[in-house]
C-alpha cells in the first residue's frame, strides 16, 4: 500500500482570493489517521496558514465538520484508510458562508438556536430550597436522543431546503426545540409553538431525510420534525373541534 495519500483542500483567503480554489497536499498515509490528523500534519509541517476548526478529536465538540468528498463528516471520525489509495477532497461545510479555508460562519445557526428558547421554561420557578426538579429514567428517555446533538451543523450542510431557503430554521434547531418540549421539567411548549409552527420552521421540511443520515450522533432530526408536525396538526384539529378548549 502507498505510504502517502493526496489531499485536495479547498483554500480561500478573504484578503486575496475572489473565490475558493483547491490545493493539493501529500501526507503520510497511516491506518490510524483520520482526516483531521492529516490536516494537523499539513498545518505543522507544510503550510501553517491552513485554517480549520477542531478541538476534541473525539466526536464530542462538534467543531471539525467539513465536506469529505462532498459528504458532510466529522473529520476527527473519518479515517483516511476508508478512502485510500484515492485522493481525498476536503471542503468547508456546504450552505454556509466561508470565512477562510475550511472555516464557515455559524452566526445564522446560532441565531436559529436562540429563537427556539432552548432552556427549561417554568410557569413559576420553584425556590432552590425545594430542591431539584426530579425526573424518572422513562421521562429522560422521552427526549434523550434529541439531547445528544453536538451542534456540528452537518445536518445543515446536508439539507437542500436550508441551502435554498436560508430562513429555514433547520434540522438541529427543531430537534433542540423538541428536546425541551419533551422534557418533563419543561412547561414552555406553548412559547415555542409560534416559532416552530411556521413555514420557515417545521412546514418548510419536506422530509428529505438527509439530516438524519449524516448525523454522527443519531439524533434523527428528521424524526423530530415529523413528530412536531403531528403535534402541530393535532393541535390545529383540537382548536377546530373544540374552539373553547383553551390552549
Amino acid at each position: 500500500m502507498a505510504d502517502t495519500i493526496k489531499l485536495e483542500i479547498s483554500r480561500y483567503s478573504p484578503e486575496t482570493d475572489a473565490a475558493p480554489h483547491f490545493q493539493s497536499f501529500e501526507v503520510p498515509f497511516r491506518r490510524d489517521w483520520v482526516v483531521l490528523d492529516a490536516l494537523n500534519y499539513i498545518k505543522d509541517k507544510q503550510d501553517g496558514s491552513l485554517t480549520y476548526r477542531w478541538s476534541c478529536r473525539m466526536g464530542i465538540c462538534g467543531s471539525c465538520g467539513m465536506l469529505v468528498n462532498g459528504e458532510p463528516k466529522l473529520t476527527c471520525a473519518t479515517f483516511l484508510a476508508d478512502y485510500a489509495p484515492a485522493s481525498i477532497r476536503v471542503e468547508p461545510l456546504r450552505n454556509f458562508p466561508i470565512v477562510r479555508d475550511l472555516v464557515i460562519a455559524m452566526n445564522d445557526f446560532m441565531r436559529k438556536f436562540q429563537k427556539m428558547k432552548p432552556w427549561l421554561i417554568r410557569k413559576e420557578e420553584k425556590p432552590v430550597s425545594e430542591g431539584e426538579y426530579l425526573q424518572t429514567p422513562e421521562q429522560l428517555d422521552a427526549y434523550k436522543q434529541f439531547s445528544m446533538c453536538i451542534n456540528c451543523m452537518l445536518c445543515y450542510a446536508a439539507c437542500p431546503v436550508y441551502g435554498l431557503d436560508p430562513l429555514f430554521a433547520g434540522p438541529a434547531a427543531i430537534a433542540l426545540a423538541q428536546r425541551y418540549n419533551l422534557d418533563s421539567r419543561d412547561q414552555g411548549a406553548k412559547d415555542r409553538f409560534p416559532v416552530l409552527s411556521q413555514h420557515d420552521a417545521i412546514w418548510g421540511c419536506t422530509f428529505v431525510g438527509e439530516c438524519t443520515r449524516v448525523c454522527p450522533k443519531h439524533v434523527d432530526p428528521a424524526g423530530a420534525i415529523q413528530q412536531y408536525k403531528l403535534t402541530a396538526a393535532l393541535d390545529w384539529v383540537k382548536s377546530v373541534v373544540m374552539p373553547w378548549g383553551g390552549k
Binding site: Y12, E15, D17, P97, V99, A105, G163
Partner: peptide, 14 residues
C-alpha cells in the same frame, strides 16, 4: 454579515 465572506451560489443542478 462580513463582506469578505464567500458565499457559494447553489448550483442550478443541485
Amino acid at each position: 454579515n462580513h463582506p469578505r465572506w464567500y458565499r457559494k451560489r447553489v448550483s442550478t443542478y443541485w
